[in-house]
């Protein structure tokens, strides 16, 4: 058994595999604010950790999020057919939405703002210290023979 580090779908499956090297956002989410907290008496203190200040989570109920969702409807490609397993969910786009399809191609095409920028935002914030991130593969500790 080894640390799985292959990103992307494995064997054409639906499930993508990621490991410790799959991205800084994953690492931050996986390890920050986790783990055993040690008593103050034996701890000399936490060394300055800039990343701890970064909140990788998005506040889900906020005006900004609402506007993002509204923007997604701008980007909705109303001409695309629903695919495969989605057919049951999607049903039909209502008449109200369909009416506005005409003439909106330019607007839709021009919507370039991306959502889900967690990884990029983190990358930027920590950009000044990323240089020496080697992504080195290293051996893990092994168990001694009993």
């Amino acid at each position: 058994m080894s640390v799985a580090a292959n990103a992307g779908p494995a064997d054409g499956g639906a499930l993508e595999r990621g490991g410790a090297t799959s991205g800084l956002a994953d690492v931050v989410e996986t390890v920050l604010d986790k783990g055993v907290v040690i008593d103050a008496q034996v701890t000399v203190g936490v060394v300055g950790i800039p990343l701890v200040e970064i909140n990788a989570r998005v506040v889900v109920s906020s005006i900004e999020t609402y506007l993002k969702f509204a923007e997604m409807t701008d980007r909705l490609d109303l001409s695309a057919d629903a695919e495969g397993g989605l057919a049951g969910l999607v049903g039909e786009v209502t008449g109200a939405a369909r009416e506005v399809t005409a003439g909106l191609g330019d607007t839709v095409g021009g919507a370039t703002r991306q959502v889900g920028g967690t990884a990029r935002e983190l990358g930027r914030t920590t950009g000044d210290v990323v240089d020496d991130a080697t992504g080195a593969v290293r051996d893990r500790p092994r168990r001694r023979e009993r």
């Binding site: 058994m1 800039p50 500790p141």
Partner: peptide
């Protein structure tokens, strides 16, 4: 100062690698 991306990755790789054997 700690907390560079390389530090976090090192921390995780060490722990994940250890978890695979113990």
């Amino acid at each position: 100062p700690l907390g560079r991306p390389a530090d976090l990755t090192a921390y995780q790789e060490l722990l994940d690698g250890t978890a695979a054997v113990a």
